[in-house]
Write a protein that binds this DNA or RNA. Sequence first.
DNA 1: CATCAGGGCCCTG
DNA 2: CAGGGCCCTGAT
Length: 322
Amino acid sequence: MKLKKIADLKLIPTAPFDFDKTFHKPDHFTSGDNYWEPGVRHQTFILNGKKLGVVFKNVGTLEKPCINELIHCNTKLSHEFILSFNEEVKYRYNLNFDLEPFYKKFGAHKLLGPAIKRMYGMRPGQPSSLYEYLIIGVVLQNTPVGRSIQMFKVLLEKYGTPLEFSSKRLWCFWEPGRLKGVSVDELRALKVGYRAKFIKKIDDYFSKGKINEEDLRGVNKETQKEELLKLYGVGPATVWYIMFDVFHRWDTFDHISPWEQKIYSKLFFDKDPENPVSTEKLLRFISGFAPHRHLAIHYFWEDLWWKHKNGKVGWLQGLIRA
DNA sequence: CATCAGGGCCCTG
DNA sequence: CAGGGCCCTGAT
């Protein structure tokens, strides 16, 4: 599907703002739906049935941030639609985030301070809706990353739509309900294994209106967790990702998965990943970052992955199994 | 060749 | 609450 440029806009994030560290997270595995190079992010979106190809360009500085946003579509878009899309972009990438209280409290912290310095101006951010994130969460489960990438790619290319815009060809996610006529066996044939049932049920749950992202954003964190755990195939690890990335619970941190346990052990206690510190002890340590627990971990984590991307973290390689 | 664990979760006892 | 089973793959 070929798209044409519909809108050329400016977005002004709060300062300080680091474009690349916000729009590119080296540990996020999704591919095929986005393209990043320094200063530019291409990203597909689907919102209210409109398939969009969006280019974000950095045209500002750390202290005077400005983003040029080019929206491409194959139909006209109303003014109201563009406004609501922009609200969604601001939400998903936290463009109005106030980093000041966090920096003030932890800028001089022995371990976190240096990470904050290196990642100065980064905020949490990711492009997916709750439905999309759940599908991503499911393909992440119990498998090496390489296979997650493979499963995601196959799903996207089977049920998504390729969009051509700004001389790129990127896949756009499908909408909830798309899998209504698709059988579990058909999904299994895509080699997603036992996750086929999870994916099918999640799609079904959404298309029946049993869960609504907008409503869930407005309720307390206990209810959010409860509602997520009702979904077949969603457990504590998947909920942990979603509470932060989708519901922006910056302080919620009550679960550590085994592979993360190894990494935190090395990072915080310089312990051999094969002989890791107990999760209880790690959680106690992390609670020292209240009221910004997960945000603090995000800073450590992304700092580590950016270093790794630049080839400076040997011990991490063995733990990733890409 | 066989075996095993990997960025979990469900179900059973 | 502990532990087995689950899809598939690549490493050993």
